[in-house]
Computed example of a mutant assay.
Amino acid sequence: MSIQERISQAINQSGQTKSAIAKACGVNPSAVTQWLNGDTKAPTAERLLKLARATRVSYTWLVDGKGGMHEGPEEPRAGYAARANEFEFQETEIVDGDGPLSPDEVELPCFYEVEFAAGEGRTQVVENHGHTMRFSLTKLKKRGVSPESAALATASGNSMETTIADGSPIAIDKGTRHIIDGKIYALDHGGMLRIKRLYKLPLGRVRVVSDNSEEYPEESYTLADPDAPRIIGRVFWWETFD
């Protein structure tokens, strides 16, 4: 089955109108008609990702025909027609901007802290769907991260120096919340966004470790306790500025 045939099958099985599909993918209905008829080349990777989301099919199946039509997790890859050894030359860093996305970019939501109420001095970690940043699909593919599970944030403070500096952008895989010893995780701890290494302990406890251990002593919690941090996801990428 060709990619055009899979696109047509995904759209038809969704039961949605061409207008609805077009709106979800950010194109004109005439473009959807062309996709259905195979009258044009396949959409970009970004359009295919939006189409997979809109029709609730596997991105990998849609692009490559691999796996089941509705299987997951996904592993989108930039430049789906490109050879594997070309991926190294398609790296795209996260940027702000209003221009059109390149085939190797996806917009990801950003986590940040906001105050609960004025004057209370308390914060809450939220995912800001109004603010996004662009990120490389190539980077996500290399780490096996689905775009639907990815988000961005900014590290605050020096607790993870020298690994992650204050103000460094980080990428979070919300699909990985189980603890892998020694990996770095984003935590919602009483409304505070914290970035720490986690280690499993017996009896459902966890070690919370800062790389800057001189200033930030190790902590431990029972995950079921109300004062324990909530795991947002694993930090799989960060950028450090000098």
Rank of each mutant, 00 (worst) to 15 (best):
E5M: 08
I11H: 05
T17H: 10
K18H: 13
S19K: 12
S19M: 11
A20R: 08
A20P: 06
N28W: 11
V32A: 01
V32N: 02
D39N: 14
T40D: 14
K41I: 13
A42C: 11
P43G: 07
P43T: 11
A45M: 07
L48M: 08
L48I: 06
L51D: 01
R53K: 12
R53P: 02
A54K: 03
T55C: 12
T55F: 06
T60F: 01
V63S: 10
G65Q: 04
K66P: 03
K66F: 09
G68W: 11
G68F: 12
M69E: 12
H70W: 14
H70T: 13
E71V: 15
E74I: 04
R77Q: 08
A81T: 11
A81S: 14
A81F: 10
A84Y: 11
E91M: 13
V95E: 15
V95T: 15
D98H: 14
L101Y: 11
P103C: 05
D104M: 02
D104Q: 12
V106R: 01
P109W: 01
C110L: 14
F116K: 00
G119Y: 02
E120V: 07
R122A: 04
R122S: 04
T123I: 07
Q124A: 08
N128R: 06
N128V: 10
H129M: 13
H129P: 05
M133R: 09
M133E: 02
K139Y: 10
L140P: 09
R143I: 08
R143K: 15
V145S: 05
S156P: 05
E161F: 10
T162H: 15
T163G: 07
A165Y: 15
P169G: 12
P169R: 00
A171K: 11
A171M: 06
D173Q: 07
K174C: 01
T176V: 15
H178G: 08
D181P: 00
G182N: 06
K183L: 00
I184T: 11
Y185Q: 01
L187E: 02
L187C: 00
L187P: 01
D188S: 01
D188K: 03
H189S: 00
G190H: 01
M192S: 08
R194A: 00
L198I: 03
L198M: 03
L198R: 00
Y199N: 01
K200R: 12
P202M: 02
P202L: 02
P202A: 02
G204A: 03
S210M: 08
S213Y: 12
E215G: 10
P217Q: 01
E218P: 09
E219M: 05
E219S: 05
S220C: 07
A224T: 05
R230F: 06
I231G: 00
I232K: 05
G233K: 00
R234N: 06
R234F: 07
V235Q: 00
W237P: 05
T240P: 09
F241N: 12
